[in-house]
Design a protein around this nucleic acid. Sequence first.
DNA 1: GATGAATGAGAGTTCATTCAT
DNA 2: CATGAATGAACTCTCATTCAT
Lengths: 230, 230, 230, 230
Amino acid sequence: MRPDQATAAATVPAPKAKRMPRAQREQLMLDAAVSVFAKSGYHSASMDEIAEAGGVSKPMLYLYLGSKEELFAACLRREAGGLVAAFRDAAAPQLPPGDQLFGGLVAFFRFVGERRDSWALLNQHARSSGGEPVVAEVGQVRRQVVAAVTALVRRAVGSGVQEDPTGRDRGEAAAIAEAIVGAADALARWVAETGGEPPEDSARRLMSVLWIGLEPRMRGARFVPATPSN
Amino acid sequence: MRPDQATAAATVPAPKAKRMPRAQREQLMLDAAVSVFAKSGYHSASMDEIAEAGGVSKPMLYLYLGSKEELFAACLRREAGGLVAAFRDAAAPQLPPGDQLFGGLVAFFRFVGERRDSWALLNQHARSSGGEPVVAEVGQVRRQVVAAVTALVRRAVGSGVQEDPTGRDRGEAAAIAEAIVGAADALARWVAETGGEPPEDSARRLMSVLWIGLEPRMRGARFVPATPSN
Amino acid sequence: MRPDQATAAATVPAPKAKRMPRAQREQLMLDAAVSVFAKSGYHSASMDEIAEAGGVSKPMLYLYLGSKEELFAACLRREAGGLVAAFRDAAAPQLPPGDQLFGGLVAFFRFVGERRDSWALLNQHARSSGGEPVVAEVGQVRRQVVAAVTALVRRAVGSGVQEDPTGRDRGEAAAIAEAIVGAADALARWVAETGGEPPEDSARRLMSVLWIGLEPRMRGARFVPATPSN
Amino acid sequence: MRPDQATAAATVPAPKAKRMPRAQREQLMLDAAVSVFAKSGYHSASMDEIAEAGGVSKPMLYLYLGSKEELFAACLRREAGGLVAAFRDAAAPQLPPGDQLFGGLVAFFRFVGERRDSWALLNQHARSSGGEPVVAEVGQVRRQVVAAVTALVRRAVGSGVQEDPTGRDRGEAAAIAEAIVGAADALARWVAETGGEPPEDSARRLMSVLWIGLEPRMRGARFVPATPSN
DNA sequence: GATGAATGAGAGTTCATTCAT
DNA sequence: CATGAATGAACTCTCATTCAT
């Protein structure tokens, strides 16, 4: 028995289905790649492993997807696209901003709960893995989401954001949106670690702190330490 | 005593200072390793690079630090320790909880702003890099911070957290603490990208949304969608 | 009959002309192969490239030509045949030997100037590329040419070659023929690099040194160093 | 027994001499590489083979020589240097040009006869093997030699070269030099195939045709076909 | 007859890691 | 104590070659 057989068998090789059209094979390969990348991270994953998990030979991987980095990028693109689509579809524009954000968060938590690998890929591994263009691509996606949330924050509080005459607060809404997204990320991890809960509950948790705090903050309320700083 | 050579020599191969006590050598190596890991990430960094940056030969590196993974872990331990210490020192226990959290956040944002390499290591590269023990290590640190914040949240709202008779809210404070920490991370990145601002400002931004929203939320206020979900 | 598609379609993938007699297909493939081999060399050329350039699928290539090496050999055979034929046709046997050689050289230089790919194949790539049989094949061709030239040299100087009673000069004519052929090769490269000139000029250059030197040499003239060798 | 052992053992692995200084190891590696490249050509030679022939591991090859292409270039540089040096040392500048060329040719034929691998490398494999810079390098060497010969030709015939008032013959000496060098190459191959002879004999053969033909040619003698060309 | 789909085998390259001086 | 010298083991990627339709 060869020594590396044990680890190679860790990921289940798909049942050999020969001779299928290119588009379909490509999806299978992406499925396998997402799964392996999510498990091992970009660097530790080997193309051999991915090929085996996908039930194809390495040359097919390269023929269809180009290179390891392109493969990784394709995975990220597909999964990020799914997440963004879920978010956007759930945040119906005719709703009030709070409901939009709530809907989007529900979709987000559902995605995180249901597609573990996708989320692991996007959240853990995309940050520091591939080359510059790949990271940029995923950063782009995050920026889109933040921009959408920023718009919602702005709409929610009217023009309150721009009342500061000094202009120092111009990025305020963006900062809040960043905080919301970051909090959602963290909460998602917490939910996963804690054992899961309905996505609606997670979304409500977040909204119940962040959205409720939004209004007084935008009216001008500021945190002031009770004790003077050093 | 010579001027502080240790911190300055991080990237430049220090002029060979032979015969130096082991503990000091080790710190020099860690300095170099932190710098290199932060720049290239765990996998792309090579032991050659680190040895050269530290002005030592590779066998010394291995003799003192064991292996690449152990070296990485040692870096994380040291830097995480620094962050936790900074946070804890700033959150003086005799202050009211809000002030404690505020102080801790100021320290956090200062750390992020001043020790870029350390933060890059902890935030970007630790997530998906080493094997299990390394990841566990960093997860441990995060959990410590979250626990501290959780305690503050509990103290801040009195026993309100446990009022829910169904017990469904038992993790509420923890969830909020997670969200706060996640929001702080995200805000830190935003600040870095936006060009920097005084750490007090960043801390105030966060407190002005999260802490202000905390009180009504704990009094029982909940977000309820204006439109019934399907 | 359509305009001469065969030679034109060497690099551009010819518009798919299906159902074409085997012999013709084969020539098209050879055209493509010659062009690609000449451009990239034997090893760097890929069968994919050749198949695409020829407007056929790879299995056809293999069906008709066998293997990469056989394909290369077929190319060499065809092109070498062309060169030898050109040389022979130009060296009309009823002419005096000098005129025969001159005519052959003119044909040779014309071939080199007009069929660049063929010449590149024969001169550059055949030397070190395929396995033994291929090299042998090309060596064979060269030997034919040298033999023809040798005969001309012999005829030109009468039986002078065999006059040496010691027999040490038995290969003399052959050696001279080799030198002539080598000089022609080198001159061909020089002409190509220098920008080209009428083939008659190149042939005359060569004849004006080599042929003129032939006669005194065959009469017994020998180079003798002015200074005694060590 | 592993299946590739047979072919690997084809080149004799040097007796394991461990721990030697870098410069020396490098020479051994180059020796091995020259031998293997000469035998198989650039593309067919594998780094494994070279490493084994040199009694080192592949990483050493890469550490010392950089890459396959750089290794090949280093081989060419070393061998070409040897050949040029031999030629130059033998062509003492105080001698008359004919003796200089004769001496150089003797050295050349000696080199070809004694260092078969070097010559195979330079003559067969360098033409179409490595990337552009490598080929250029070797081309450069040939050009140096041709330039030296050109100078000798010029000196030998005085200013006869420039007598042609039309200027069309400006490259004449260069063309003759090219022809001489090409003839030497070809003769070298012939000598090798025929079984070898003293280098002085080969040099005399060449001089006895080319150099003797030089003078009348430079006096204006031209080959004129006895029969008018078509 | 003709081809899209598929692969076994091997190449160059790099790295963490360890002797032997 | 300290290091130049050395390597086993992988990894990404490519190519000639062949099924199965």
